[in-house]
């Protein structure tokens, strides 16, 4: 079981890092999601010292029970990963709305062109009220 976990975690992490290095905001997010799931699997794997039936009461007889703590931790980490992903997607969407592109090369080119054109003055401030919703997921924390 352990080598299998190790291989899967390694592959997930590797794919995640590969995607992180792509010049495309959306792929970067996908890469981070993979890395976060590699981390979640690591948490699960850290409880593999004991395995057995699901740790939900009532427990049957004297059968061994799997470690409930790692499962609780993974669940919380999943929720945090969910919140974080939605923040990232919102940010990515913000970039897309402003620039009509999520390609980093293109964005950099545009920015360089703008900077060369003039000392960019402060863009008008517009409301980004959607951001205040996302962090509240984290209030899950108390579980």
């Amino acid at each position: 079981m352990n080598p299998l976990f190790a291989i899967v975690i390694g592959v997930l992490f590797g794919c995640g890092v590969f995607l992180l290095l792509k010049p495309d905001l959306f792929r970067v997010i996908a890469g981070l999601v993979l890395v976060s799931n590699a981390a979640n699997l690591t948490l699960m794997a850290s409880g593999l010292t004991r395995s057995g039936q699901a740790p939900i009461a009532p427990v049957e007889g004297n059968e061994p029970v799997a470690d409930p703590l790692v499962q609780a931790m993974t669940l919380t980490a999943l929720v945090i990963g969910f919140a974080v992903t939605s923040v990232l997607l919102a940010l990515c969407y913000g970039v897309y709305r402003a620039r009509r592109s999520v390609d980093l090369d293109e964005l950099s080119r545009e920015e360089a062109a703008e900077a060369a054109a003039l000392e960019a003055d402060e863009p008008p401030l517009d409301e980004e009220s959607e951001y205040d919703q996302q962090d509240e997921f984290d209030e899950e924390i108390v579980r």
């Binding site: 992180l20 981070l32 940010l91 863009p123």
Partner: peptide, 28 residues
């Protein structure tokens, strides 16, 4: 990112990606 502006959103994206990688390492 709050307060808007293209530059802030891009900075927030970089900030979030780099720090999240650190957070996930911490989780591991």
């Amino acid at each position: 990112a709050a307060g808007g502006g293209d530059r802030r959103v891009r900075a927030a994206f970089t900030f979030a990606v780099v720090n999240l990688l650190g957070s996930f390492l911490f989780l591991i």
